[in-house]
Write a protein that binds this DNA or RNA. Structure first.
Lengths: 252, 252
DNA sequence: AGCGCTCCAATTGCATGCAGTTTGGCTTCC
DNA sequence: GGAAGCCAAACTGCATGCAATTGGAGCGCT
C-alpha cells in the first residue's frame, strides 16, 4: 500500500513561480554564489518580466532563506554563517528522521523502484560536476519527503535541504559522493524492509556524516562574516588608542 | 551562560511586513476564520497601502501556509485538512524537542525569569477569550525557540506553531488551558534542571496531548473539504455509470 | 421550477512611473 | 597621499493604470 493517498504540491505556473524556480536552481547549483547581487532590474530584464515580478520572486526566495533582503539594498544570495549551516543540518536531521519513520514499510514496489532509479542516476552522475551530484543527492531526499504525501513536510524538508545545499557550496571541501550514494541505497533497503528504528538511525548517521564531512570546523577564514572575523583585532585597536576607527583616528 | 550569542531575527519594518504581522495575528486570533476571503483591494484600502503591497504580503503569508493563493482567484485564509493538521503537529513535536534539547541546562537566570513571567501572563489570561489563551500558549513556544538563537529554528517553529493555531480554531472543541499551563511550568523546571531527556519527553507529551485533545478524530462533518467527503460516493458513480457527475447524470 | 447562456462588475496579473535612498566615483582640501 | 564632502547614477519602495480572467446575476428557453 502506498504511504498515503495522492495530493498535489507543485508550484503554480505564475511568472513569479517560474522565476523562483529558475533562481532557486541557479543558487543551489552555485551558478549564483552566496553573496551574489540580485538587482530587481537585471532579473526582470533577464527573465523578460517587470521589476514588480522579480521583486515578488525575491520576496518568496527570501522567505525560503535562499536570498537576503535588506531595505533599500540590493538583494543578495544568502550567505549563511557556519552556525546557521550547522543549525540547518540539525533541523534537517530531525525532519528527515520523521520522513523515514513515516515511510518505513509503507512504500509500494513502484516507489522503491523510483528511489532506486534515482540513486542509479546519482551513480551515473559520479565524476560529473560537483554541483550536479549535490543537487541529485538533495533531490533524493526531497523525493523521499514527497512520498510521505505530507505537503508541509515536503515544504520544510525541501527548504532546509536547499539551504544545506547552499552551505555545502560555502564550507565544503571537494565533495566525495561515493559513500553518500551507498548510504542512500542502504536507506532504501531498510525502508523496504520496514525497520523504522534502523532506517531512522541510518538517516541520522547519513546526514550527520555529510554535515561533518562538509562543515569542517568553524573554518576561521571562510567564515565570511567580516565583522566577526575582525572583532578581536578591532578590540585591540579601539581599546588601546581611539574610540572611533575611521573618523577620529587621524586626530590622535 | 546564555544559550548562544545574540542575533537579530525580527521582521523588518516594511509596509509589507507590517501588514503580514497584522494579518497573521488576525488569523491566529480567529478574527479571520479559515476560508475568509482576502481581496487585495480591500486589504490595501483597509491598511492604507496599494494593492501591490497587499499582494506581496499575501504572497509571504502563503509561503508560511496561512493563506491559500490560487491563480486569478481571491486569496483565502488557509483551511488545512485534518491530515495536514496532524502532520503539522508531528513536525512541531520534532522541532520543539530539538529546541528543548538545545536549551536544557543552558538558560540564564534572566531567561528563566522571562519564561516564568510569560507563563504568569498565560495564567492571568485564563478565563478570558480562548483566542488570547491560545495565542499566549503559542507564544510561549516561540519564546523558547528564540532562546536557541537559531534564526532558522525560530522561523520553522513559529510557522508551524501558527499553523497549529489555525488548525486548533478549525478542529478544536472548547479549549482547556489549565493543564497546558502546568505543563509549561514543568518544562521550564526541567530546562532549568538541565535534564535534556526529561524535558524532551515532557515537550513531546505536552504537544501530543494538545494535539490529541484538539484534533478529535477525523470528524467527518467538519472536515470541510467537500471533495474529500464526496470522494467515495463519486467513485461509485463514476465507475458504475457515467463519466461526469453534474452534466450527464440527469440523462441516466 | 430547472438548466444553460450572456454579460457585467469584481478581481487579479502585470507593467510602468515617480519619489526617496544608497552607492561609488570625483573633487577638494589638508 | 589620504580623508572629507559632494554629486550623479543605480537601485529600491510604492502607487497607479490597463488588460485579462472570473463569478454570478439576470434572462430566456424548455
Amino acid at each position: 500500500m502506498a504511504a498515503r493517498a495522492s495530493s498535489k504540491t507543485s508550484e503554480s505556473s505564475d511568472k513569479v513561480s517560474v522565476i523562483c524556480r529558475a533562481l532557486r536552481r541557479a543558487i543551489i547549483e552555485q551558478a549564483l554564489e552566496p553573496g551574489a547581487k540580485l538587482p530587481e532590474d537585471a532579473l526582470g530584464e533577464r527573465f523578460g518580466v517587470s521589476r514588480t515580478i522579480a521583486r515578488h520572486a525575491l520576496g518568496q526566495l527570501a522567505a525560503e532563506g535562499l536570498v537576503e533582503l535588506r531595505r533599500n539594498r540590493i538583494a543578495v544570495v544568502a550567505t549563511p554563517s557556519w552556525q546557521e549551516a550547522r543549525d540547518a543540518f540539525d533541523i534537517r536531521i530531525e525532519l528527515e528522521r520523521l520522513v523515514v519513520r513515516q515511510l518505513a514499510g509503507k512504500l509500494t514496489k513502484a516507489q522503491i523502484a523510483e528511489l532506486n532509479a534515482h540513486v542509479d542516476a546519482e551513480d551515473r552522475a559520479r565524476g560529473g560536476a560537483d554541483a550536479v551530484s549535490i543537487r541529485l543527492a538533495t533531490e533524493f531526499h526531497i523525493l523521499l519527503a514527497h512520498m510521505t504525501n505530507s505537503p508541509i513536510l515536503v515544504r520544510y524538508v525541501s527548504e532546509v535541504a536547499y539551504r544545506c545545499c547552499l552551505t555545502l557550496s560555502l564550507y565544503s571541501r571537494p565533495h566525495s559522493t561515493e559513500c553518500a550514494i551507498n548510504e542512500h541505497r542502504a536507506i532504501i533497503a531498510a525502508l523496504a524492509k520496514g525497520d523504522a528504528a534502523k532506517v531512522m538511525e541510518l538517516m541520522h548517521h547519513h546526514l550527520d556524516s555529510v554535515a561533518n564531512r562538509a562543515l569542517v570546523a568553524p573554518t576561521p577564514q571562510r567564515g565570511r562574516d567580516l565583522l566577526d572575523i575582525l572583532a578581536p583585532y578591532a578590540d585591540e585597536v579601539t581599546s588601546n588608542r581611539v574610540v572611533k576607527l575611521p573618523k577620529i583616528a587621524r586626530r590622535g
